[in-house]
Amino acid sequence: MRKYFEIAKILFKAQLVYRFDVFFNALFTVAKIVFAYIVWGVIFESNTTVAGFTLSTMLSYYVISSFLSQIEMSDGITGEISGRIRDGSFSKFMVIPSNTFLHFLWQNIGSTLFYMIFNFFAAVIWIFIFKIDFALTTDIAIIFSSLLLISLGLFFMVQLSYFIGILTFKFKNVWLFNLIKGNIAAFVTGSLVPLVLLPMGVVDVMKFFPFYYVTYLPSMMLIGRNIDEFIVGIIVLSIYILVFIIINISTYNFLRKKYDGVGI
């Protein structure tokens, strides 16, 4: 276990080199809040509530969901695995004494923790700049429940990104899969618009998929809504996580035989 902590520590420190990326990541958090402020500010000029949201709760939702979507950085795993398989340097992960999935998971944890600090401050500063009446729940149990959901959700996204990454063994180039996954995930996780605005039937279908519980449900819980969905969220995410553990192990063991170690 200690070696994985070391991997996380190295990646945490390595982010210091990529200052511009860190700056832009935080700027994206801010940009999402600013555009939510512009669009919803206009909408709430002629409406007092929309789907049960006031302007304050809507902006609070965007602050939390923007923060969560920016710390969901598993895309990098797909990029690195794909790049390394293509240039032949993936061989390293087959010979070092660490589990490949855990290696990428802890790399992701290390870099995410670093970005989390800056994104957190970016979000907090803009709460004060926009004078948002931040509607965060004060119930400690709900906050911890949300943190549990967030952790499981991020873990699931790492699994999904890892799965797309190792598909490079078979498909040679997975950038298109990754791009499509990223665009769809942005919508179905509720980081573009709260899912409660969608027709009820669509939302009910979304509850069968894990994305609903990655960003949307924790954000809603943190503003004091949808608390009753917590247990369902834990169950659904746990099932998907277990399924993907099996899928990832079997896919990796099957496809790694196609890798010849000299790049594509």
């Binding site: 669009v39 909408i43 002629s46 409406n47 929309v50 789907a51 618009v193 605005l197 969608l198």
Partner: peptide, 9 residues
């Protein structure tokens, strides 16, 4: 989704 809940933006 937004227009499902408001008439005008």
């Amino acid at each position: 989704a937004i227009y499902g809940n408001v008439d005008m933006i």
